[in-house]
Simulated scan of single mutants.
Amino acid sequence: MSASGDWTVRVLDLEGAVDKAAFMDRCATALDLPAWFGRNWDALADALGDAGQLPPPAAGHRLLLVVTGWRGYARREPGQWEIAQEVFERAAAVRVALALGPL
């Protein structure tokens, strides 16, 4: 995690993620989600939609999730990637950005 301007930035690196389980594990790590996180799409949508389920960003900051290495996952799991994008688009507690190149 790093802070930049008014944003607390967390990176979700999907490089090498081969399936939904790996995707969810990486989300749990990147977002520092609790052990009871359900590792399914509904649980991720709930976490991204409710700031109370996420560790608080730095004081006065908003949370930005930068997704890197996502293209391989999108090719391997196109249906799951489509769901992920829908969840990201609906996120109310965090802004999600897809990185098109290395950070």
Score class of each variant (00 low, 15 high):
Gln80Thr: 15
Ala21Val: 14
Gln85Leu: 06
Thr8Lys: 02
Cys27Asn: 09
Arg90Gly: 10
Glu86Tyr: 04
Val96Glu: 05
Arg71Tyr: 15
Trp70Tyr: 14
Ala3Gln: 01
Val9Gln: 06
Val67Leu: 10
Thr29Pro: 06
Leu63Asp: 00
Phe23Arg: 01
Arg71Asn: 12
Phe37Val: 08
Asp19Asn: 08
Leu48Gly: 03
Tyr73Gly: 05
Gln85His: 07
Trp41Ile: 06
Arg62Glu: 05
Pro34Asn: 12
Ala3Phe: 02
Leu65Phe: 09
Ala51Met: 07
Leu33Trp: 05
Ser2Gly: 06
Val67Ser: 07
Ala30Trp: 09
Val87Asn: 03
Ala28Asn: 05
Tyr73Asn: 04
Trp70Val: 08
Ser2Thr: 01
Gly69Asn: 11
Gly101Ile: 11
Met1Lys: 04
Gly79Ile: 15
Ala97Gln: 11
Lys20Gln: 15
Leu14Val: 09
Gly38Ala: 13
Ser2Asn: 04
Gly72Lys: 00
His61Ala: 13
Lys20Asn: 13
Trp41Ala: 07
Asn40Ser: 12
Lys20Ala: 13
Leu65Arg: 01
Asp19Ile: 08
Leu31Val: 05
Asp6Cys: 09
Gly101Met: 12
Ala47Val: 01
Tyr73Cys: 09
Val18Arg: 06
Arg10Cys: 09
Val18Gln: 09
Ala84Glu: 02
Ala59Lys: 03
Ala59Met: 07
Asp32Met: 14
Leu12Phe: 14
Arg75Val: 15
Gly79Cys: 15
Glu86Phe: 05
Val9Arg: 07
Arg90Pro: 04
Gly72Leu: 05
Asp50Leu: 10
Val18Phe: 14
Leu12His: 10
Leu48Val: 03
Gly38Phe: 09
Ala35Leu: 12
Thr68Lys: 08
Val87Lys: 02
Cys27Val: 14
Arg75Thr: 11
Glu89Lys: 13
Ala43Phe: 03
Ala22His: 01
Ala93Gly: 09
Gln80Ala: 14
Leu100Asn: 08
Gly49Ile: 00
Val11Pro: 00
Trp36His: 12
Trp36Pro: 02
Leu33Ala: 08
Gly72Cys: 04
Leu14Phe: 11
Asp32Ile: 07
Thr8Gln: 04
Leu44Met: 13
Trp41Gly: 01
Val96Met: 09
Phe37Ala: 12
Val94His: 05
Leu64Gly: 01
Arg10Met: 06
Ala30Ser: 12
Leu48Thr: 00
